[in-house]
C-alpha cells in the first residue's frame, strides 16, 4: 500500500469537516467540525514527515494541536457566554452583522 492513501483520507476528512461547518447550526457541532478539519491537516503533516524523513512535519502538527487547544478554550467560552445571553447555541441567531 502506498502511504499516499493517508493523504486521500486526510483530504476526505477535511472536506467532510468543512461541509459540516457550513451545514450545521449548533455552534458546538460547528466547533467539532473545525476540530475535525484541524485533525485532518495534522494527519497530512505527519504523513509528510514520513515522506521527507524528518521530524519538521510532526513539529508543525504539534504546534497545531497547541493552537487548537487555545482556540477551543476561547471558542467554548464564547459559546457559553452567548448561550447565557441569548439562551441559544445556534450560529444563525447571532446574525446582527447585517443591516
Amino acid at each position: 500500500m502506498n502511504p499516499v492513501y493517508y493523504l486521500y483520507l486526510a483530504a476526505l476528512l477535511f472536506t467532510i469537516g468543512a461541509t459540516g461547518v457550513l451545514i450545521r447550526r449548533n455552534a458546538i457541532v460547528v466547533f467539532m467540525c473545525i476540530e475535525l478539519m484541524l485533525n485532518a491537516c495534522n494527519l497530512a503533516f505527519v504523513v509528510f514527515s514520513r515522506m521527507h524523513g524528518n521530524l519538521d512535519g510532526q513539529i508543525i502538527a504539534f504546534f497545531t494541536m497547541v493552537v487548537a487547544a487555545a482556540e477551543v478554550v476561547v471558542g467554548l467560552a464564547i459559546i457559553v457566554s452567548l448561550f447565557r445571553t441569548r439562551h441559544s447555541a445556534s450560529v444563525d441567531d447571532a446574525s446582527l452583522m447585517k443591516l
Binding site: V21, L22, V91, D92, S95, L96, M97, K98, L99
Partner: peptide
C-alpha cells in the same frame, strides 16, 4: 447588500 444577510454560515 443582499449578500450581507448576517448569517456566519453564508460568509463561511
Amino acid at each position: 447588500r443582499r449578500l450581507q444577510n448576517g448569517y456566519a454560515r453564508s460568509y463561511a
